[in-house]
Design a protein around this nucleic acid. Sequence first.
DNA 1: CCTTCCTGTCGAAGCGCTTCGACGACCTGG
DNA 2: CCAGGTCGTCGAAGCGCTTCGACAGGAAGG
Lengths: 336, 336
Amino acid sequence: MSSPRTATIADVAKHAGVAVSTVSYVLSGKRAISATTRQRVLDSVRALGYHPNAGARALASKRAKVIALVLPLRAGMNLPVLMQFATSVVTTARQYDHDVLLMTADEGPDGLRRVAASALVDGMLLMDVEMHDPRVPLLRHLGEPSVLIGFPADREGLTCVDLDFARAGALCADHLAGLGHREIALLGAPSVVYERGTGFAERTLAGFVEAAGRHGVRAVTRPCEESFDEVCSAVRDLMDEHPGVSGLVVHNEAAVGHVLGALRVLGKRVPEDVSVVAICPDDVAERASPALTSVLVPAEDVGRQAVRLLMAKLDDHPVPQSTLLEPRLTIRESTQ
Amino acid sequence: MSSPRTATIADVAKHAGVAVSTVSYVLSGKRAISATTRQRVLDSVRALGYHPNAGARALASKRAKVIALVLPLRAGMNLPVLMQFATSVVTTARQYDHDVLLMTADEGPDGLRRVAASALVDGMLLMDVEMHDPRVPLLRHLGEPSVLIGFPADREGLTCVDLDFARAGALCADHLAGLGHREIALLGAPSVVYERGTGFAERTLAGFVEAAGRHGVRAVTRPCEESFDEVCSAVRDLMDEHPGVSGLVVHNEAAVGHVLGALRVLGKRVPEDVSVVAICPDDVAERASPALTSVLVPAEDVGRQAVRLLMAKLDDHPVPQSTLLEPRLTIRESTQ
DNA sequence: CCTTCCTGTCGAAGCGCTTCGACGACCTGG
DNA sequence: CCAGGTCGTCGAAGCGCTTCGACAGGAAGG
């Protein structure tokens, strides 16, 4: 049962009849090795099922080949997107031969410090960055390579990636305005998210308002809680106060379903009476009835891009300070 | 800017005026150290901001203090529960001074092999285990300490944890029968989940049917897809074919909201015409209207318990082969 | 034909930590 | 008062890997 002690590089060297360092150079490609030797070593590696010991490698090379993914896991986050994101980070990292250490934000800045100081990871990916995030100054100070998902207020010296939420908001307004709607509304995140100063919510709103203005369309916006009853009354109030609203943008994944339910209850048909555009993942939009015209949050792209940037930084390649990912609008049945 | 090379154990030893090994013993507690020396060392540790180098520690001690969390990230999984689970795993692991490496199942068995062979992790947690999971034999073979979330068909030599889904199903039936309902129905996971032979769906169903039988109540069950339209027709068909059904159990998180919408569309009032019990996280149940009587999937408990078991195994403590977590029914407004 | 320069390989020196055996110093009991 | 224990500490030997400098041997250049 007990495996016969996993093979070490010395075993491989002996098996191939070469020096330990030669094996290392074959595996890392850092020095030229003749084709025949290389092949012999590779064969031995396979024969013995050799995998380098991660600790030893990290110790000697000062590279752990692990990156940290710091997820928030706080109230008001939308989980499915997060999960998609995490998946794409792991997958992409593996393509670069790196693994992913999962951290939650509740260990706080100390967690970052610990992980950096112990050389457990080579760099980190931080999600759900706020405008005035306490981790940001620490990050600058630590000097660990890092990439942020989201934009803090002061971007100096950082590398940030995000969906271009302003464009997303604008895209929704453009679409509705293009369909001839003259008065449109945005139902956003729960108010707590705005209070926290999470950038993406504000940027969506700004983009929406700006685009509406550009088209000469009246725009109203309000936060949106996530229980059915609260969504219901929010929608009702909105319609009462602004009876002319015929286009609705929903930027709140948990509430999307409830908004449709609320409209049904109020006797509003979609899209005949009200057109609805959601900013959410495609599966949620497709699962709704009618299927929702939506702007996709490209979680996978963001994850992939973030990892790429981090890898570039690890290799000391220069990277742009900000990367904005283009949103994509998919027209389905909920707008006309 | 560049930190002055992070402190090593040698630095601490020098600063405290003791031998390196003494520092190590203070930190690990594996040998008796006088109170005064201990204090001096601890002070130096704090003064220098010392954190042991993870690689070196792993190399020397053969313990990485990292566990792997293998998530599925496949279709039909319900993400929020998964996320809660992941959070509780990370948090609990940290309490045991361990970190968590995130792996997706798509690297497959090779991923497990790699991670085990490279000693990157000391043990693993596998989620979403199927009845005939290909990873199970490998796991037995590798001899890495591991804990499974979910039950494969052959449990021999493994350690498994899960919610007692049979009890959960039974609890729902008990509750409805107790309220006097004589004909009840279970709306389950999408059919693909049953086809995959995922244990939890089948066990819920079995528990539900068994309990209904025990109470002399008629039970009907069917799988349930996740789009609003499909849910709608499933509910309509169900009601047409079994007009006597007055109690509904929904074991499908994504469909819960749609079921309520469907009943609303069909003119059925909840709970006056139909009582509804959901098996889902509390926040989903609370967010619905009316707030749903629900059986909680105690993702946090499962995560915590799984980590505890794994830690016990790492310390060579004996652990039970199966651990079933008791479900808890919360009565809200949707049943009468 | 001899220097100069690659190319391919090797040996050895760490990386920072844990752990084992050794060994004074001190206590205890006969 | 000394044999036999403890207790607290130290030094050194690795753990498995990377990487540096050295060095044969052959190619190229004068």
